[in-house]
């Protein structure tokens, strides 16, 4: 089973990125082989619709679950259509969240926001 996490840097100790659509990289982690693969998020610098494109990237990598602190409604629609489950991260690092997911300590993300639409999220 493969899972995806938005991350700030290309190593497994890195922190989870606060944004899904604008995250610089995604960590694609294979739970069986324990293999980490970091991919660039081509949507990060797009003018708009970053969440949709980022979700497309996640779908194309054939993951079964996304671990993220937050997710916009359009991205969630794309992910749901592909039957990808969205879990809420609770730890700072990617590594801790992966372990948390394996130990079934993460819950499904129930708060889907309406998107930032080019505005600063802070």
């Amino acid at each position: 089973m493969k899972i995806a996490i938005p991350v700030n840097e290309k190593n497994i100790e890195t922190n989870v990125c606060a944004s899904f659509g604008r995250s610089p990289y995604f960590l694609i982690y294979d739970i069986e082989t324990q293999e980490s693969n970091f991919i660039d998020n081509f949507a990060a610098s797009d003018v708009g619709g970053a969440g949709i494109k980022a979700a497309q990237i996640i779908v194309d990598n054939e993951v079964e679950a996304l671990l993220t602190p937050r997710c916009g409604e359009k991205a969630a629609e794309v992910l749901n259509s592909a039957d990808i489950k969205i879990f809420k991260t609770v730890y700072p690092s990617a590594k801790e969240n992966i372990q948390g997911f394996i130990d079934k300590k993460l819950n499904l993300l129930d708060e889907i926001h309406a998107g930032f639409h080019g505005h600063n999220e802070n």
């Binding site: 797009d46 949709i52 979700a55 497309q56 779908v59 629609e77 794309v78 259509s81």
Partner: peptide, 23 residues
């Protein structure tokens, strides 16, 4: 079409094209 759209209004999921009207 998905690759062309600069606004990312289209996505292709599970053999189906999605169009986001608002985008």
């Amino acid at each position: 079409c998905v690759e062309f759209c600069k606004f990312n209004a289209l996505a292709y999921i599970k053999n189906k094209l999605f169009i986001f009207d608002e985008i």
